[in-house]
């Protein structure tokens, strides 16, 4: 079953002047169709202003569609009554780690979500311990979030979502404000959740390297889905990605340049090892 199903989804940001007349309409999502199967690791790529964050906020019912529809685990997000259920099914992690941690102790922050949905006290404690363990932050449970690094804070935020036992986690550029080490930490945690616990991941990003491991990639530009496919299919179209202001990973770019200069390396090389192997084969 598709956990997320978007059909002809449209979202317009309407700007009104003081009298309430429409000043300008900006279409952030333009007839978007996206399907995500349960347990998949999906990446949504896009340049600034491509509408990828707007889409993410729809999955969590933070924004509601102007036209078209979106179902999360079979529930229509446009229906007011479904909002809490939708938010419980699809948790969301935001970009700025500081602005999404509510409590001043790590474990209390992780407990915030379960508290909100009325989980009994003892169950909250086991959930908090389990989710902190699953992101490798259990030993920091009594720390103040202010003393953690960016990557650690973001893992706490992920644990906070995990504690609500969602089926799906949407990460809206979770690594944009982190250093390379923090970025690796967060991605490793996310991948583990996907593989070990079977949680559906929707990773929204503009870093190409993060997309390599995804099962399926959507590329968005100006509110439309312009490309979709496996990472290999996407990265074999270096020219087309460039048109949408996106870069490919360095290895892929190198492979592409080699191909163009007449060396027969395969299309859509994703990792350094693959490229080395291909070149070794050609060299004999």
């Amino acid at each position: 079953m598709n956990i997320i199903k978007a059909r002809q989804l449209v979202h317009e940001y309407i700007r009104r002047d003081e009298e309430g007349n429409v000043e300008s309409i900006q279409t952030a999502l333009n007839h978007v169709d996206i399907d995500v199967k349960e347990g998949q690791f999906i990446a949504i790529l896009g340049h600034n202003g491509s509408g990828k964050s707007t889409f993410a906020k729809h999955i969590n019912a933070l924004l509601s569609p102007t036209e078209g529809s979106l179902w999360v685990d079979g529930k229509d997000v446009a229906d007011e009554e479904n909002i809490l259920a939708v938010r419980q099914t699809a948790g969301m992690v935001f970009q700025n780690p500081d602005n999404q941690i509510i409590a001043s102790v790590v474990e209390e922050d992780v407990g915030f979500g379960p508290e909100n949905i009325g989980v009994p006290t003892e169950t909250i404690w086991t959930r908090v311990a389990d989710s902190l363990r699953s992101v490798g932050m259990l030993k920091y449970r009594n720390h103040s979030p202010n003393k953690l690094s960016g990557g650690q804070k973001q893992r706490v935020a992920i644990a906070g979502v995990m504690a609500m036992e969602p089926k799906c986690i949407v990460l809206d550029e979770p690594t944009a404000m982190l250093d390379p080490n923090g970025r690796k930490e967060v991605l490793r945690a996310v991948r583990e959740l996907n593989q070990k616990k079977g949680i559906t991941i929707i990773l929204i990003t503009h870093y190409m390297e993060e997309v390599v491991d995804a099962d399926y990639v959507y590329v968005m530009d100006k509110g439309e889905v312009v490309m979709k496919g496996t990472p290999r299919e996407i990265f074999s179209q270096v020219g087309k990605l460039k048109e949408h202001h996106l870069d490919v990973p360095q290895v892929t770019l190198l492979a592409d340049i080699l191909r163009q200069s007449g060396i027969n390396v395969p299309l859509g090389v994703l990792t350094r090892e693959e490229l080395v192997e291909a070149i070794m084969r050609i060299a004999g």
Partner: peptide, 16 residues
């Protein structure tokens, strides 16, 4: 972020 984590005021909340 609070809304995304189902916060909707004090009603129906449990305590950790």
């Amino acid at each position: 972020a609070m809304e995304a984590r189902c916060y909707s005021g004090g009603a129906g909340r449990t305590k950790m």
